[in-house]
Design a protein around this nucleic acid. Sequence first.
DNA 1: GGGTCAAAAATTGTATACAATGAGAAGGAA
DNA 2: TTCCTTCTCATTGTATACAATTTTTGACCC
Lengths: 245, 245
Amino acid sequence: MSRQSEKSLSQTLRAALGVRDLLYSGTFRPGERLSEIALSDRLGLSRTPIRAALARLEQEGLVEVIPSGGYAVRTFSEADIIDAIELRGVLEGTAARLAAERGISDDYLNAISNTLRELDEIVAPPVAELDFERYHECNAVFHDQLRNLSGSTIIRQEIERVTNMPFADPSAFLKAQVDFPEFRASLQVGQEHHRAIIDAVAKREGARAEALAREHARLAKRNLDYVMKNQILKDSVPGLFLVAV
Amino acid sequence: MSRQSEKSLSQTLRAALGVRDLLYSGTFRPGERLSEIALSDRLGLSRTPIRAALARLEQEGLVEVIPSGGYAVRTFSEADIIDAIELRGVLEGTAARLAAERGISDDYLNAISNTLRELDEIVAPPVAELDFERYHECNAVFHDQLRNLSGSTIIRQEIERVTNMPFADPSAFLKAQVDFPEFRASLQVGQEHHRAIIDAVAKREGARAEALAREHARLAKRNLDYVMKNQILKDSVPGLFLVAV
DNA sequence: GGGTCAAAAATTGTATACAATGAGAAGGAA
DNA sequence: TTCCTTCTCATTGTATACAATTTTTGACCC
């Protein structure tokens, strides 16, 4: 059977990816029922893996259970997004604080310092020339290193869970930030935050590291606020259409 | 079919409860493979609901995926427990802080104050007469109210998730606390924390509320430390046998 | 005795069938 | 029209069958 034969992923995984893609591409409206049969037809899979995928996406928070049976696209409120962003700040802050308190190895510090330097390079030139793709990737690397900084599996998993929510990801507003000049300054502010967080961790200043990580996440709240006021911008944030007006 | 006919829960739910019970009762050793067939035989269900239950328990963190297929009992380290407790403190602290910052309704405040008064009554008499069952229930109510205090669904769900881990629950060490006199004093300290947290929330002192909730969770760490040193006590903490020595 | 290879047994992943419930349409009464 | 009732159809939850792959057993060789 196709457990993992070459390029052929498990059907269940393929289903999860497929349904998630459908959700993100806006194929269904918030609150709409997700018919297992329709999905299995569309993705060319049987109902079993679809069903497993839906159960998984429910735990991820993208779909919700209908009491009478089945699943529906989850609807979010703006307050949910704000809370999710706040929560990311709190968790990344905890990762940073614990890293500061418990200490980190030189290897880790070097690795994340290298990422910082690369981000510096990317952000340094005049905003007009900013390399979007490179920034996106490098920012993801930084936040990945940050959530591993404390060395705690439990913390990392929890951050990953929250970050899975479409609009709570550290890069959620990146597209909006790059496409609209008035946003770009916040990229440099963000990079300043990055530096300060790692500086605090290196100096074992736990409280400072935690506070900074929280403040860093709050940049996203500001972006959200702006984006919500401009219909045009909304489409640049993945999954934002899941938010009920 | 048996969607929810009277007392008959869905088979999937029954499977989840059944497997969890088996895990908690120590039927399987940490790391041991959980055979779907064995489980379905044992619980008198078909493999389908068992499989769904296992997928769910994996998200809850009780079982883990075996790369070659299937599930195994998850193994925890002592560090995992410490981190989970710390995380609970952080999240409950966030709930308290947000409640303080955003304000809570008089109804909520009254409700949780009533719980506080009841806990006072329970803890007041000489320790020898402490009503275990009543304390257990009342403590659960308090922590439930606490995690709803901010009114945020996202926060509440996240606390519930972490609290699902067997040893991160606020009542995890209760049995040990009651059975062993040297522990009982910590119940009164805990109640003092409860009072202070709510006082801080009512006065909108967010930072204080957050710090207190964290410190409250750290009581559990102290208990853990003590329990880990005494083999006899270990059995009084649910799921602690999942911890690798 | 230990290690390697091969065959057998066990176990999973997936597809499909079926019964029971829920949702929705059609139709009638007010 | 609007509301209620009934009937039909669609959809889910569950069981089971089957193929593929792991894992284990056992034999053989060094």
